[in-house]
């Protein structure tokens, strides 16, 4: 049960890490690589807050040993942006109001990214199915679904209220 030296490709960079075999990818990302965007929310694979992209697919990093992730391209939420400017998808999540407490957001955004990379204009049903493994307590999922629709260039309901004035000045996507 010695520690072993492994190579992980995370956000396009090769990282050498010394790990115990029982460490999950999530633990290594958070504890060894200081990538705390992936969260630990449930310990049993039911919440989706630990989601990362593994070769482009959204997977749970709490259900993957770090050693199993060798040889694969890992992208975490930190890898979607340069740290200063949000990626277009992140910006749409913010603008549409799809982020509230933000604990689900990294997993939710990465899941949405994987979906959008494989389907150019997913239907509402497809979006809900794709994010059904990511729990959110704040949004009722409505604005998340709308953000993914907007990100794929599909129309989303325009909500205005009488006092809101000119619709065009709204910060939509």
């Amino acid at each position: 049960m010695e520690q072993v030296l492994i190579k992980l490709t995370v956000n396009g960079r090769e990282e050498d890490v010394r790990v115990s075999p029982h460490k999950t990818l999530l633990e290594v990302l958070r504890d060894d690589l200081s990538l705390t965007g992936a969260k630990n929310g449930c310990e049993d694979g039911s919440c989706g807050t630990c989601t990362v992209l593994l070769d482009g697919a959204a997977v749970r990093s709490c259900l993957l040993l770090a050693m199993e992730a060798q040889g694969h391209e890992i992208v975490t939420i930190e890898g979607l942006s340069d740290g200063q400017n949000m990626s277009p998808l992140q910006e749409i999540f913010v603008n549409q109001g799809a982020v509230q407490c933000g604990f689900c957001s990294p997993g939710m955004i990465l899941t949405a990214k994987a979906l959008l990379d494989s389907a150019s204009s997913p239907t509402e049903t497809e979006i809900r199915e794709a994010i059904s493994g990511n729990l959110c307590r704040c949004t009722g999922y409505t604005k998340i679904v709308e953000a993914v629709m907007a990100a794929s260039g599909q129309p989303v309901p325009v909500r205005t209220h009488p006092y809101e004035g000119d619709v065009s000045e709204r910060a939509a996507s």
Binding site: R30, L35, T36, G37, A38, K39, N40, T76, I77, E78, L80, S81, G83, M86, Q90, E91, F93, V94, N95, G97, V99, Q100, C101, G102, F103, S105, P106, I109, R159, T160, Y163, E164, G165, E169, R170, A171
Partner: peptide, 22 residues
Amino acid sequence: GKRRPRLDTIPRALGEAKFSAD
């Protein structure tokens, strides 16, 4: 009264927001 994105959510979307366990 104006609809605008919440600036506090940007760090959360970026994944840089630190929660207590982070």
